[in-house]
Design a protein around this nucleic acid. Structure first.
Lengths: 206, 206, 206, 206
DNA sequence: ACTTACGGGACTTCCCGTTAAT
DNA sequence: ATTAACGGGAAGTCCCGTAAGT
């Protein structure tokens, strides 16, 4: 990694830290620079504008997010050949990784950009939507295979069930912050798993 | 309603509209005033500072939110004497009201203040937390009564199950915006109902 | 004194108190009203504008100032028939009144308007100048009569000597505030008296 | 002198010019910038706030003031070995420099900050007090040496006599402005010299 | 690749004076 | 005839982005 790239990463790290805490609009370029121990010239050398910083931030976050999902799926597929078991293993691994995640991130970067529209241009919207659809596709694939093997399951909509995982993840993050309760997110994700267990007629594991 | 109160409400309406769209930091006082068709003097007369506007905004929103929940609970209690039926009726009414809600509100005001901390002082945090706990208490009461009548239900944590409704509501709101799909929120809430139906051994209604 | 006049005086008192402390520009109408426990309507009923308040303030102060000088002169004239003794008696009485004055006033209102030109219009300038000339005339009269009786006195300029009393009074006020030493003003005025004693060949009284 | 320092000085010059004329509160940042032909950005770069400008203004003024006094003292000491002669030479030099001073400065910056308390924070108070004490120390040293050689002098308080010079200087400045008479200050300072001449039994020089 | 200094505009704050309601 | 509400504008703060220099 060259020196320039290293500075760029330091700026992105500082920016992400501040944006997660205060939102994008309230995060000034100067504050990012102070945290990254860099300077104006360096910033505008790497990013044409603050909006470009936002774009880069979301894209880097989305890439990491996709990688994390792919890893979870791989863990699931390594655990079993049965799609339901794969899904449950995936979810268990997800739950187990939450505590570590919370230490690094007090929230989800996507939310800042979803609720602060028009700040970094509409290009971030597209990136965020792609990330969500990636989760949908990954989970839905397991759900459909599982459903094919369980003809007598309750008549629930699978696409929305896939989306529900993302929803509970985001909602749980919010409640974790709002109530200042770091256990919230993990316990809520457990309910998603329980729901899946009930749908596919498995015993519920606490 | 006095003249002053009416102006104050008009300012709050305009502010809420803009904050839901752009976030609090990006919403300028001038923009609020333009939308409310009011003036700097009027604003400063009613709100000592922009932070006080934020506080008033959250408090008014929390009051309306609590009233909406209380109404849903009343609808549930009017529908049946059985706690599970009450809960399911409540959830059905919730789902049916979503479309109308989305026409008025493109998001939840709480999220803006949870993800833009320190903007309107920490007093908003407390108000938001109280709102969430109000939902927990209202749903939890029904869940516990239902659980008392269903000793053989799966071993799920009831407090978190109560919280899960709020989480899915917030997460569904986010996905509705991110994917620009107004049906998302309602379909996700239906899954919450299905989960409750499975837990209490009721047939799942799509 | 009618009720309206009483309110007006209360406003003037509050304003003088604040202006002496912060200057005229920094003294807001609202602050005056808060201190006077009155309201906007009352203020603009009595004073067409803030500038008029300034004008009224200076005029009231100048009138009180002139009355104080006249009283000092009367005290001097009651003490003796000799003009030098009259002057010295006047100065002693001045010194003795200082401590009481300082309790009420932490400074001279004129200074605020001399150093904040163009705030209350140029009409205040004229009032201030007249006040100074009144002091000059009062003291100069005594000095000239005394000089007529002391042909061998040192060749000092009498008009400026008269003015010097005002100067030391103002300068002493400033130092009293700057050094937060309430004895300063009185001790400096004693030097003026000593100077007069030396000029007219009298023994110096500490 | 670097580029930045030059701009900073230009801003300070413009600010001093305006503050002496209108006071600190009435001097707007925009007016300073217009006079200094600079910009908001430059101002905010050099001074975090208007209060800091005030602080810098007073500190620069105090430094120049101290230097001027030191130069006067040096002139006195170069003129003679006798402390009385040194003092009189110092005072004569002071008087001779007044006309030139008045062309540049229509008043004393300290007064603005003494009479507009709490505008630039209380830190200016300390700087002003130190300046006054510097004058006291410089003059008092000469007075005490002179007094040691003149045991028969009148029983006047030397510390206050030292302070009196500052007082007459400030009071004379005020009268110069109030009466619009540029000769006032010099003539009043001459009286201070005459007083010293009388105390130390020297012939009075007009 | 990076730094300091700067340009200029937008935003919150704040305040004088007026109007409307009691 | 007093008080609350309001209108409008200016002042201080703050910040994005540029430029000159190293």
């Amino acid at each position: 990694m060259t020196r320039g790239t290293e500075t760029r990463e330091r700026i992105l790290d500082a920016a992400q830290h501040l944006v997660l805490r205060q939102g994008f609009a309230s995060t000034t370029v100067d504050a990012v620079l102070a945290e990254a121990r860099s300077s104006k010239g360096a910033f505008f050398h790497h990013f044409p504008s603050k909006a470009d910083l936002g774009k880069a931030l979301v894209e880097r976050y989305a890439a990491a997010d996709a990688a994390a999902l792919d890893e979870l799926i791989a863990i699931g597929e390594a655990a079993s050949d049965d799609p339901v078991d794969q899904l449950l293993a995936l979810l268990s691994a997800f739950e187990e990784g939450i505590d570590q995640l919370l230490e690094v991130q007090p929230g989800c970067l996507f939310v800042s950009f979803i609720y602060e529209a028009d700040l970094a241009g509409s290009e971030t919207d597209e990136t965020v939507a792609q990330s969500i659809l990636h989760w949908r596709a990954g989970i839905l694939e397991k759900l459909e295979k599982a459903a094919a093997q369980h003809p007598s399951m309750p008549p629930v909509e699978l696409t929305t069930l896939a989306d529900l995982l993302f929803s509970i993840f985001e909602g749980g993050f919010l409640m974790t912050r709002a109530l200042d309760d770091p256990t919230m997110l993990r316990r809520q994700l457990a309910h998603y798993r329980h729901y899946v267990e009930l749908i596919f007629d498995r015993p519920v594991h606490p």
